[in-house]
Computed example of a mutant assay.
Amino acid sequence: MTDSTGETEYRVVADGVEKAFGDNRVLKGVSFTVQRGTATAIIGPSGSGKTTLLRTLNALDRADAGVIRVDDVEIDFATPTTKSEVRRFQSRSGFVFQGHNLFPHKTVLQNIIEGPVIVQKRPKEEAIADAVTLLDQVGLADKRDQYPYQLSGGQQQRVGIARALALKPKLVLFDEPTSALDPELVGEVLSVIKELAVEGWTMVIVTHEIQFARQVSNQVLFTDGGVILEQGPPDEVLGNPKEARTRQFLERVLNPL
């Protein structure tokens, strides 16, 4: 399906995605879509397949079966694929990890331009100009020449976001971006992601921050046992869930005592 500009309405289409690690079936025929310019939050208990699902969207974990399309690149994971096909698929998205994953021996600026220059072969001057703009956007313009160890956890995560955006991806993937942070640092990272949502970046966010998911997302997927049990607008899934398991999960998360 395309819109009036001729662009594909859906940025992501996943159909029947399967993934197992040994005898453990982590994803059991997962299907969903993500519209261009929207944010999708994936919530669910530990071990429900949230992170694995996210990683299949960038082929960091290669699905065993199912079809995934990101922007204009589609892969049927039940059939053999070449390395170049996988690289093209991966180039459509940027990934923000739980633990920052910054190069400790490189400065903030060097971390951000690594992908554009080394992987995308873009001119270094262009990559630096983009990086400076992104650092200003995430509130770290004065940290460009510092090293990761000189930054707080929240600042490191904001660098990680800038690094992902520097690739100019069609899709930005966030794997529990605040889970490794002290509580007092969570807000600064969530505020950056909220700004990205307002700007119309297409995002899929695995998160345990339920109120954040309600505020930032256009769609919520609730996963459990390797399947999507419920999906829809946040007001429905989080405010008036249809499934008993969703209600049970939300009650435990929102009222832990």
Rank of each mutant, 00 (worst) to 15 (best):
T223R: 00
L257K: 15
V204S: 07
S191C: 01
A129P: 13
A78H: 00
R214N: 13
V96Y: 00
L171T: 08
L53Y: 03
T38R: 15
G66S: 12
S46H: 14
Q248M: 10
G232N: 12
T81V: 07
D175T: 05
A180K: 09
T107V: 08
A213W: 09
Q248I: 10
V117F: 04
P104H: 08
A65C: 07
F103H: 11
R11M: 15
W201K: 13
V108S: 07
D224N: 13
I118E: 15
P234G: 08
V70C: 09
L167V: 07
L109I: 13
A213Q: 05
N255G: 01
D23A: 10
D64L: 07
A59S: 15
M1P: 09
M203R: 03
G16Y: 04
E176H: 08
S93Y: 01
I193R: 06
L171V: 01
V216L: 06
E125V: 08
G225Y: 09
T178G: 01
P148V: 11
A213V: 12
F77G: 05
D72M: 01
L173W: 02
R245A: 05
L254N: 09
A244T: 14
I228E: 08
P169L: 04
G94Y: 02
V30Q: 11
V73R: 00
R55Y: 01
Q137E: 15
E209L: 00
K121R: 15
T2Q: 10
P234R: 07
D224C: 04
A162L: 01
F21V: 09
E85T: 03
A166F: 05
S4K: 09
D224F: 09
I75V: 13
G115V: 13
P123M: 12
R87F: 01
T56I: 06
E199F: 04
G44M: 09
P241V: 12
T33H: 13
V198I: 14
S93M: 06
G22N: 08
R36C: 13
T82L: 00
P177F: 08
G94W: 00
E7H: 07
F21S: 06
A197F: 03
M203P: 12
T207E: 08
R92Q: 12
Y10H: 14
A141I: 11
D235N: 14
N240Q: 12
Q248Y: 01
F249M: 04
V96L: 02
N24M: 11
